[in-house]
Design a protein around this nucleic acid. Structure first.
Length: 507
RNA sequence: GGUCCGUUCGUAUAGGGGUUAGUACGCCAGGUUUUCAUCCUGGUAACAGGGGUUCGAAUCCCCUACGGACUACCA
């Protein structure tokens, strides 16, 4: 019996969504769509102490910006609502109780302090404290206390947790789509807390219960969860849900670009690239972290960049739309090793997307920037300019530096060019050129070019002697688009003005 | 420390017993362009180390090294 593919993205609202998380969400989405399945958003907020206001909204806004839609979940609703674990709180206890009834879990009354002390003293002996078959007998729990004592503590309202009883001496097998068979001996596992003293389940319980209830078929999550996957397998078995256990796929981590280690919030701004999809202002410290959106990345480009960090299609195609990614994606082609973010490649991707936009589309995004600078232009003119300069930029924001001379005459001239190109005969040449332009009836780029070339030939001057000077006068530097196209856009009057100004100013 | 996961050019990766170890970004050189950018062509650069298995290993196995994750009443 084939179940309908259902996957979930289950972030914790403890801060802004990290690009590693975005990639996890993306892979989940791609997998779901590829198999005609569902993609749910579940918010895992079982830890009230770490809740950060705005984080949940941030997650949803990020996914919206990226154009990755959920089919079900928080903010959308669906047959398994609610999708926020804090709102599902009453649901979990019964499963913990069920586990206790079946002998797979037990009450424990050790205080945090007691636990900490024993961990410390074990550490002093260079041993690791594991709360399991080996140590249960020395702690305060259902095994060391009589049933009457336990009941009395419970009745007295004493604080307790419910721990999972890891089976003794067993090899636990986790079947991972990406990593194959992973085996861990139960002696290495500890009796994790399933149910906290505050009445909330821990991740482990809530996650398994909700995945079961929501009929999740594939759990695609970060590699940091691999060590606890054996516990989850055991939990499915103990709950009697083994035949409904989802398949696991643990994704490789995103690493920092320099050195090693997991990519973290600090690295991004240190290395000059965002680690968050959207700009984030920490509600407590007020600290601002940059986002891809605000940095000028296109959502399609971010999706494309992220898709290729840990996955490849097995062909040489690198530019993929979201639809194409859905078509090409498979978990089998996800790599095992952590991937480092490459800023240069990311910029290249964005540049590629920028160039592939039409001049009109680019202009639409550029006009607001011009407005901010107090410049009003027609859509047509903006589009013409964008068409001329878009391939010289990685981001929309770089367009201004590439095109400001269209709107504002240069207030200085590149010294290097002056030094190299401004010769004794230059002023005379420039004067002749000015009067040529002054007398030109046709200022269309091509005819103007042809006529000017003819003129240069007639006075016995090579283009190299004057073209750079004219560019310098018009642009202020020696770079930029086709000179005659610039003149055409500037118009005769402005062109002649700028040439005259250069003549007067230089030397 | 323990457990688990990983390791191909600087980066992302292809290749999974016989390849001149391929591609992209970056970088370098040449071409195009009156300039710069784009574009085109070429180049640079990698199988962590050691043992096996095999006629043959980047590929399979083991060990070592290195890196990472986890080791909470956090997720």
């Amino acid at each position: 019996m084939e179940r309908k593919v259902r996957v979930r993205f289950a972030p914790s609202p403890t801060g802004p969504l990290h690009i590693g998380g975005v990639r996890t969400a993306l892979y989940n989405y791609l997998f779901a769509k590829k198999h005609g399945g569902d993609f749910l958003l579940r918010i895992e907020d079982t830890d009230q102490t770490r809740f950060v206001p705005g984080a949940e909204e941030y997650i949803i806004e990020s996914m919206n910006w990226l154009g990755i839609p959920f089919s079900e979940g928080v903010g959308i609703g669906g047959p398994h609502a609610p999708y926020k674990q804090s709102e599902r709180k009453p649901l979990y206890k019964q499963y913990a109780d069920d586990l206790i009834a079946k002998g797979f879990a037990y009450y424990a009354f050790d205080s945090g302090e007691e636990l900490e002390n024993i961990r410390k003293s074990m550490e002093a002996e260079k041993k690791t404290f594991i709360y399991n078959a080996a140590t249960r007998g020395m702690m305060k729990n259902s095994f060391t206390l009589s049933e009457a004592e336990v009941n009395q503590k419970l009745a007295a309202g004493e604080q307790f947790v419910i721990r999972f009883k890891i089976p003794d001496n067993e090899e636990v097998l986790v079947n991972d789509i990406i990593r194959g068979e992973v085996r861990v001996h139960s002696a290495q596992l500890d009796d994790k807390v399933l149910f906290k003293s505050d009445g909330m389940p821990t991740y482990h319980l809530a996650n398994v219960v909700d995945d079961y209830l929501m009929e999740i078929t594939h759990v695609i999550r970060g590699e940091e969860w691999l060590p606890s996957a054996p516990l989850h397998v055991l939990l499915y078995r103990s709950l009697g849900w083994e035949n409904k256990m989802p398949q696991f796929a643990h994704l490789p981590l995103l690493l920092k670009p320099d050195g090693n280690g997991k990519l973290s919030k600090r690295d991004g701004d240190r290395l000059g690239f965002p680690v968050f999809p959207l700009q984030w202002k920490d509600p407590k410290s007020g600290e601002i972290s940059s986002g891809y959106r605000e940095s000028g990345y296109f959502p399609d480009a971010v999706v494309n960049i992220l898709a290729f960090l840990g996955w490849n299609p097995g062909t040489t195609q690198e530019v993929f739309s979201l639809e194409e990614l859905v078509e090409a994606f498979s978990l089998e082609r996800v790599g095992k090793a952590g991937a480092k973010f490459d800023l240069e490649k990311a910029k290249w991707f964005n540049h590629h997307y920028l160039v592939n936009l039409s001049a009109e589309q680019v202009a639409e995004k550029f006009i607001p920037i011009l407005k901010e600078k107090g410049i009003e232009v027609s859509k047509e003119k903006a589009a013409t300019i964008c068409g001329m300069v878009k391939e010289r930029a990685h981001f929309i924001s770089e367009l201004w530096a590439q095109s400001s001379f269209f709107f504002i005459a240069p207030d200085s001239y590149d010294e290097q060019v002056i030094k190299k190109k401004w010769k004794e005969e230059t002023p005379e040449l420039l004067r002749k050129s000015i009067s040529f332009f002054q007398d030109s009836a046709n200022f269309e780029a091509q005819p103007l070019h042809d006529a000017f070339m003819e003129f240069l030939t007639s006075i016995g001057v090579g283009p190299g002697q004057i073209m750079n000077i004219i560019r310098l006068a018009l642009v202020g530097s020696s770079s930029g688009p086709d000179l005659f196209a610039i003149m055409n856009l500037l118009g005769k009057e402005e062109t002649v003005d700028r040439l005259n100004r250069a003549l007067e100013t230089i030397k």
